[in-house]
């Protein structure tokens, strides 16, 4: 079973994404902020991370950078889900090595189709 880490500081979004992942048969871990996410990655290696960008402590970009800079973690698939929709923000996300950048609000079906595609490839 593929492991997915969901990182978001909004409890309702966290709640809905967690539900979606479980329903699609993945093992889900949640982090309510950046610090929790980093702590989790110290000792775990999920197959995919769903990352929010704007969080009060550590932002999503930094977490992505950390993943891509750490040899043990670099092959984790990173997917950003963010309310930042400016082109520059999206480009930065892809530049940091993300596989996907999803703008909020998103379609749940669409999201899942893409996540499934990424994890089955």
């Amino acid at each position: 079973m593929k492991k997915v880490l969901v990182v978001d500081d909004d409890p309702y979004i966290l709640m809905s994404v967690e539900f979606l992942m479980k329903k699609n048969g993945y093992e889900v871990m949640v982090a309510r902020n950046g610090t929790e996410a980093m702590a989790f990655l110290e000792s775990n290696k999920p197959d995919l991370v769903l990352l929010d960008i704007m969080m009060p402590d550590v932002d999503g970009y930094s977490i992505c950078r950390h993943i891509k800079a750490t040899p043990a973690l670099e092959d984790i698939i990173v997917v950003f889900i963010s309310a930042k929709t400016a082109e520059a923000d999206i480009r930065e996300g892809y530049d940091l090595g993300a596989a996907l950048y999803v703008s909020k609000p998103f379609s749940t079906r669409d999201l899942m189709k893409k996540i499934n595609g990424l994890l089955q490839a």
Binding site: D10, Y12, S16, A83, P105, R109
Partner: peptide, 23 residues
Amino acid sequence: YTVTHELRTPLTSIRALSEIVYD
């Protein structure tokens, strides 16, 4: 920009939660 961003967050929850309930 800030206002739209502030609007996006609740909208995201609303859409995702509604879709889940609907699906």
